[in-house]
């Protein structure tokens, strides 16, 4: 066993455990915590896969941004910390069967695909290198974002620009929806409470 294998085991166990937690917990807050564990462990897997850039993005955008947003959503919409969602027994059983079936099918595919892919993991026997040394992926990725092709292969200038527009649009849309209605003439059917209004206002500003 190499160090990378051991680390993979740890991260994989955490990721799968977190995912199972998200699926199994009935309290939304606990689900959110499981999600944090799962996503952070996935970031760890990215580091193991020599993708520190992706891992860092996962941490800063996903865990530090998206999940916080989701927790915000939980806090603003959940009635209480410990409140559990009620799920019927029948639903639980059917879900379990579906889950087992899907997992079996996908696992089967995964095993086969993994066997078919010839490349062995680029593991260093010495172990020291595994975490410490990462090949330079930063500059190639940056050049790919700037480039259109040429010598650096396929460039991703277009998606990079499109996604900027996408983010802009989405933020405007989200800010519009989350913003408390300022107009006098339109009265919502159930006036939101004052605290919620300020909260969503703050969120809109944040976005």
């Amino acid at each position: 066993m190499t160090g990378a294998d051991a680390l993979f085991g740890v991260f994989a166990a955490l990721a799968c455990g977190g995912a199972l937690g998200v699926a199994a917990f009935r309290s939304v807050a606990r689900m959110a915590f499981s999600l944090v564990v799962c996503l952070s462990a996935v970031a760890g897997l990215f580091f193991l896969l020599n993708a520190p850039m992706v891992g860092a993005t996962q941490l800063i955008v996903y865990v530090g941004g998206t999940v916080v947003l989701l927790i915000f959503g939980v806090m603003l919409t959940d009635a209480g910390v410990g409140r559990r969602m009620k799920i019927g027994l029948l639903e639980t059983i059917s879900m379990t069967f579906i889950a087992i079936g899907l997992a079996a099918a996908l696992g089967w595919t995964a095993v086969g695909l993994g066997r078919a892919i010839p490349g062995a993991p680029v593991l260093d026997e010495e172990g020291v290198e595994i975490v410490a040394a990462t090949p330079d992926t930063l500059r190639p990725i940056g050049l790919k974002f700037l480039g259109l092709g040429g010598e650096s292969g396929v460039g991703f200038l277009l998606p990079f620009e499109i996604i900027s527009v996408h983010l802009l649009v989405v933020l405007i849309g989200a800010a519009y929806l989350a913003r408390a209605k300022r107009r006098v003439d339109a009265t919502p059917e159930t006036p939101p409470e004052a605290t919620r209004e300020t909260a969503s206002d703050g969120l809109g500003e944040q976005a």
């Binding site: 998200v22 689900m31 959503g73 969602m85 579906i98 993994g114």
Partner: peptide
Amino acid sequence: MTGYLIVSAVLLTCGVVCMASKRNAVGVL
């Protein structure tokens, strides 16, 4: 590779189950 694919399969399964079974909208997300 197999290990990573299996992890991803587990994540997908949990995600699908979560989408299908949760009643809280944030849970679905």
